[in-house]
Amino acid sequence: MMPFIDLATQRARLQDKLDTIISKIVAEGRYVLGPEVTELEQRLAEFGQADHALTCANGTDALALPLMAWELQKGDAVFVPSFTFASTAEVVPLQGATPVFVDIDPDTYCMCPKSLAAAIEWTKTQTDLKPRVVIAVDLFGQPADYPAISEICKAEGLKLIADSAQGFGCTLNGKHPAAWADITTISFYPAKPLGCYGDGGAVVMRDAELAGLIRSLRNHGEGEARYAYERIGLNSRLDTLQAGILLAKLEIFEEEIVGRNAAADAYAEGFGDVVKTPTVIDGGVSVWAQYTIEVDDREGFRAKLAEAGVPTAIYYPIPIHLQAPYAGFPVAPGGLPVTEAAAHRVVSLPMDGYLGGERQQAVISAVRTAVA
């Protein structure tokens, strides 16, 4: 069966650079927060059109750190989509706050601004919760509707996090999410568009004071002096080896984004007349973390593709608000009908920066055959 994500081709392309930088880091012995980490942070800030970037241990910590910096607590409400990975929601109750689940747009699968506005108004008038933060997700690699969402946040005095775990590198009207969000979070999990060879994460932002707080929080709350602690923090530092790997990958990242978009265009042309293909927001450029379509008989469709040697995945089969640990948390007025409908129909196909030629044609042929 073909790979769902072709990491081997990328690794072969970078092998000499990876061997050199890994050998250098091992020889120098600065395995945590070494000079490559500092260099990576500078490069990430520049790439993401932000003033500051700080790495951390994983994408989940990247979400938790700003909530810690803003001192969220019991009685605070954080508005999140339910059609997402668990990390987006789980960091909220871990801070003692309450997630309020919001519906998604039926075409982009990102947070619906109308559902968000309704959820905020309902929370203000019908509960004792205090609205504090919105976490919008760049789902499947494309930007959320940040102009609309940020306008709502500004009007309500709320902080805005761009959960760009799947979407770092995406843009909207030529701007990265940092142009609108108070903070953008990144995951470097290996399957992400910009992935390392283990766990890793980062945050990018414009606010120097917030950056200073997060720098302390990621390292046990340490202050200016070593072993002098100013606050309670986490152990959330990035390994230098992972930073070195990411530096090598960042050099070809823009080229890979171009490749992913070419593959997405070929998919849309190849089977867009027989299945519902993704819609990218006007002015948006996706990094295509996943290429997700909708079909009627999903299990039958997946079985036929498997017979043809084409792997598939489902992101996400059970919305977070329907999972047992989250069932008691509030949802937007009217429920989340778009989220629940999409969860039964979506299926993701192979996608990476090297998808093309016979491999992609095999996917296109399998899709067309499966729905014939």
Results as ranks from 00 to 15, higher is better:
Leu355Gln: 05
Leu336Gln: 09
Glu222Leu: 03
Ala144Asp: 10
Leu129Lys: 01
Val26Tyr: 09
Gly270Val: 00
Glu255Tyr: 04
Ala243Tyr: 15
Val367Trp: 12
Ser348Cys: 08
Glu39Trp: 00
Leu336Arg: 07
Ala372Arg: 15
Gly283Ile: 10
Gln95Met: 14
Leu33Gly: 07
Ser187Leu: 04
Ala248Ile: 08
Ile232His: 04
Asp207Pro: 10
Val287Phe: 04
Gln10Ile: 06
Ala62Thr: 08
Ser216Pro: 01
Gly200Met: 10
Ala117Trp: 06
Ser82Arg: 02
Thr88Arg: 12
Tyr291Asn: 03
Thr88Cys: 14
Arg132Cys: 12
Thr123Trp: 05
Gln323His: 08
Asp16Pro: 04
Val338Asn: 10
Tyr31Asp: 12
Ala262Gln: 13
Gly300Ala: 12
Val92Trp: 06
Gly356Gln: 04
Tyr146Glu: 09
Val285Trp: 02
Gln42Phe: 01
Asp182Cys: 11
Ala324Ser: 13
Tyr189Asn: 15
Ile281Met: 08
Met2Pro: 07
Glu294Met: 00
Ala27Phe: 10
Phe4Leu: 13
Thr88Leu: 15
Gly283Phe: 08
Val367His: 03
Gly195Ser: 06
Ala327Asn: 14
Pro106Thr: 02
Tyr146Gln: 10
Asp76Pro: 01
Asp163Thr: 07
Asp16Gly: 02
Glu230Trp: 04
Thr339Lys: 01
